[in-house]
Design a binder for these strands. Structure first.
Lengths: 259, 259
DNA sequence: TTATTATTGACTGAATGTGATTGATTATGA
DNA sequence: TCATAATCAATCACATTCAGTCAATAATAA
């Protein structure tokens, strides 16, 4: 159990980093009542360390500049964020999950930090480094050779270690998804690692923004049948929808709301 | 029975290390009453050595602008930098080296970036993440469980993978070096990993600033005999010098020039 | 020895931190 | 617009922790 000072420090740090947080989120993260979080937030607001909103709080600095400007500037990033948020909703307290390396799965890391009990396997040095300050998350790295292009750990060491592990859910990125050629990625060794990931998970959740559709790259690492759930960000072809439905792949389309 | 000054020193040291402590825990640890601990804590707070909370105390945040503190930190960092620079001088183009996790070996990462051909094995997610933009450096991560306290990957996965590898030189940090108790570290699992590192390297180079001397922590991972070269930053006891010489351990002392 | 001082532990009423409750307020969407 | 759900501030009750007081003990000096 944390002291209130510690909790407030962490809340402040969290909001500085993520720019915002909801009361509910913080309740779950620190396992205290709403009353406590509200008290903390109002005290932090008194100290001008954050700004209170209905339902949560936001960082002080984000009050200063127009949020819409920067948010719109990085629409691509927002799409990946949306996909990640949806993906995170399938994670439950106590789960053992696998998170593939790559930019699509990266926002997922921020979404899982407030879980109070989670085991995360990841072959990304960036992902694991971001989790180094979340001691409640058990992080396991399968090791391997660092591919500088993708910052992923790949190769025989990775595959061999992964084959000793089993996870509840695997969140996997892909460079291409195509009805006839399945899931593909440009690198042979990386494909092998992704294949191992798929085989070691009870549930396979693939994350892919719309740019990956009907794209085929060099090395195949999986079929449509291997996927249990597919999360993307834009209305996709009817052909994909019906094929996914027919093969029992659940399809999540997270639409970016225009304003 | 301890004198109050001794007890306060120990309380301060404990909180510096663990960042927090409860009154209850300190009572049990020192076998004194709550009143005594509370008195100690308020005196330590008066001296700005910790921050009091309800139920205990926490370490002073690093957001401390007291000049002496930052100066000390700078100096400490400089010493580690010097040790790292000296350590890097033993690396040759084309080498396969192992770099242990920890703050002492961290500056070494910056020193090796200019090599045009190097294979680096490291069990630190921070170290490997820093090398992600140096494509000419082949980085191999042995994987394992992330210890949040030290950002090191440790455990059976790490040990098993390491035992499949062999390196020319291993740069290893330590928490304590003592003539009779050898090399020690507070964590048993970390000790096991360090032991494996030593066994898989042709040459073992230990990096330790002066604060580690004559210090013994919980778990032993090596003897003086295991070391080939020892790099430190301050004139050490004659006892160490002669013992090292006798056992064939090369000793490098990198002195910080005062200005 | 005795006197003096510092340290400690026990005690007590006060203060603090927390969760639960409730009726009021605010946001959201039909 | 209104209805509904979410969120809020205010309040209470309970447990924990606190500061302050005082007597007992230990260390030190006369």
């Amino acid at each position: 159990m944390l002291y209130s000072e510690e909790r407030k420090n962490k809340i402040h740090a969290y909001i500085e980093k993520h720019k915002r947080a909801s009361v509910q989120h913080l309740c779950d993260a620190f396992n205290v009542s709403e009353s406590t979080i509200r008290r903390d937030l109002s005290e932090l607001e008194q100290d001008h360390l954050l700004r209170r909103t209905h339902g949560g709080a936001i960082a002080i600095e984000s009050v200063n500049f127009e949020p819409t400007v920067t948010e719109k500037a990085d629409r691509f990033q927002m799409e990946k964020q949306l996909i990640a948020t949806r993906a995170a909703s399938y994670i439950q307290e106590g789960d053992t999950i696998l998170i593939d390396a790559g930019t699509t799965t990266l926002p997922l890391i921020h979404e899982i930090k407030h879980f109070s009990s989670l085991t995360v396997v990841t072959n990304s040095v960036v992902h694991s480094e971001l989790l180094k300050d979340s001691p409640q998350i058990e992080v396991v790295v399968p090791g391997g050779r660092l591919r500088h292009e993708t910052q992923a750990l790949v190769g025989p060491i990775t595959d061999q270690t992964l084959s000793l592990l089993h996870v509840d859910k695997a969140f996997i990125g892909t460079n291409g998804i195509d009805l006839s050629d399945g899931l593909t990625t440009p690198n042979l060794i990386e494909a092998s690692t992704k294949r191992t990931m798929i085989s070691q998970s009870s549930e396979v959740i693939v994350l892919a923004d719309h740019s990956k559709f009907e794209k085929v790259t060099f090395a195949k690492f999986g079929d449509i049948d291997d996927i249990h759930r597919f999360i993307t960000d834009e209305q996709v072809d009817q052909a994909f929808v019906s094929e996914f439905h027919q093969r029992g792949v659940k399809l999540d389309i997270v639409l970016l709301q225009e304003d």
